[in-house]
Design a protein around this nucleic acid. Structure first.
Length: 446
RNA sequence: GCCCCCAUCGUCCAGCGGCCUAGGACGCCGGCCUUUCACGCCGGUAACACGGGUUCGAAUCCCGUUGGGGGUACCA
């Protein structure tokens, strides 16, 4: 039998990184076993359900490259079927009506104002074998009669979940560990319906630095936020795959299709995993460097658009394209790009205080280097190699190697100690007069 | 409170009874390379929670303790 898995998010309007990891592991299992990946939107809570929230969710999945074979199926559209199952349960005495005070009510007709509770059998043990956790057992005596149908005429998610998994032929339910304790109830429902159980695999939770489940309130959990900060989808899924699973050959950074070939749901480990953004950044930077210059330039361009710190009319796409190749290997995320190229499009470079202090105030030779450089730059050929020699000579005159000598020039021209290769940048992207003006501007401040 | 789950470097992953004086990656600390930073390379730091068993032999199996987490809604 070929596997059928499902990702069943509730429509919250954004994709949580934990949900994305769950979706990814389901997808990986489907793709690595030739199975089917079904998308199901669990929107039984009508009050919170809005179509645009689902759209946002699907867009993020698509961005990550997680595609689905069936769906999205909306649970709310299956209400009649859920009701039918509940009525059957009530009819057979396996569930009963109850009022707002939770008092049982005689009768078998589902009416507004009355909820339905499933009758928990006494003295039984529900056992199941979880793919990642092994055998798990619950005593029914520890469980209470639970609501399967709400008094407002909608099914509870446990009921809808059980019915839909059964009807859709789901073979593997792969999801977060926070849902583990709901399993016995679902199993009892499945038994009552007389259908087989899917195989469960409960993934370890993603936690924050306090080892608590990632929360929307205090943690950065939105996949969309990472996208907007300039993370690549291929880096995002690569990192997510590493949370709770590891490749057998220890090669962590690799394309998704390779992971598909290596992934096995039974290799997933049990312990909670900390979402470490520093490692994500490292993986992102590595994927970034692997891009061709053309593709890098193409994909980074949105980050030098509207949000950029310079006047829009100053932007020059040709100069930026030249610069792109020089900064690609230095970025960790696309979001970093402006700080590497802003000096090209700003009327005056930013004056980074730390940089100024270190290379100008605390460097006694700064004045000499700047003056000598200005003289040399005034009428030399405007080529990287020539500019480099000029600064080297200016430095040598005061006993400084090129590394030290270029620092004040770099800060005068770009505003910062950190940036792209200086001489190439000046030769290829800047006018001689502008460079001289900036050197003079810095000189005037000393 | 009750139920369930978890426990290897700061972090993620490897280890599934002997190959472990515990391996890889991120981070961190040195060094090299170098026009800054970054990249790359070299080296270093750092862990089997504790206590009992089982076994010739345990990070690996069992029990307990401690610690952490999740669940306990007419949310999903």
């Amino acid at each position: 039998m070929t596997s059928r898995v499902r990702f069943a998010p509730s429509p919250t309007g954004f994709l949580h990184v934990g949900s994305a990891r769950t979706a990814l592991f389901n997808w990986l299992h489907a793709r690595s076993t030739g199975g089917t990946f079904v998308l199901r939107v669990e929107d039984t809570d009508a009050e919170r359900n809005r179509p645009e929230l689902t759209d946002a969710l699907l867009a993020e999945l698509e961005w990550l490259g997680i595609d689905w074979d069936e769906g999205p199926v909306f649970q709310s559209a299956r209400r009649d079927r859920h009701r039918e199952v509940v009525e059957d349960l009530v009819g057979r005495g396996l569930a009963y009506l109850c009022d707002a005070d939770d008092h049982p009510v005689e009768g078998t007709r589902l009416v507004d104002g009355l909820a339905v509770r499933f009758r928990m059998p006494a003295g039984e043990t529900v056992v199941f074998n979880d793919v990642v956790r092994g055998e798990v057992a619950f005593a029914t005596d520890d469980l209470e009669d639970f609501v399967v149908w709400r008094s407002n005429g909608n099914p509870m998610f446990l009921l809808a979940n059980a019915v839909d998994d059964a009807d859709m032929g789901i073979t593997h339910a792969i999801r977060g560990e926070d849902l583990l304790s709901g399993v016995p109830k679902v199993l009892l429902l499945l038994d009552a319906m007389g259908v087989p159980h899917p195989t469960y695999a409960h993934l370890p939770l993603l936690v924050n630095e306090e080892r608590k489940k990632l929360s929307k309130r205090r943690d950065e959990v939105s996949v969309g936020d990472y996208r907007e900060r300039g993370f690549l989808p291929e880096a995002m899924v690569n990192y997510l795959a590493l949370l709770g699973w590891g490749p057998p050959d220890d090669v962590e950074i690799r394309p998704l299709d390779e992971i598909v070939g290596l992934f096995r749901i039974e290799d997933v480990n049990k312990a909670a995993a900390f979402f470490d953004i520093r490692k994500l950044e490292h993986i992102n930077a590595t994927h970034l460097r692997a891009l061709s210059v053309e593709e890098f330039t193409d994909r980074v361009t949105p980050w030098v658009g509207e949000a950029a710190p310079w006047p829009a009319e100053n932007f020059d796409s040709d100069r930026f394209a030249t610069m792109a190749g020089l900064v690609q290997e230095k970025l960790r995320t696309f979001g970093d790009v402006c700080s590497f190229v802003d000096f090209l499009f700003l009327d005056d470079p930013v004056d980074d205080e730390e940089s100024w202090k270190k290379t100008m105030v605390e460097a006694p030779s700064a004045v000499a280097v700047l003056d000598a450089t200005a003289v040399a730059f005034a009428d030399c050929p405007w080529e990287a190699e020539v500019l480099k020699e000029a600064v080297a000579a200016a430095g040598a005159a005061v006993d400084l190697k090129l590394g030290k000598a270029q620092a004040p020039v770099r800060v005068a021209v770009t505003g910062r100690t950190v940036g792209p290769p200086l001489f190439e940048t000046m030769a290829e992207c800047m006018e001689r007069q502008e460079v001289l003006r900036r050197i003079a501007r810095a000189r005037a401040r000393l």
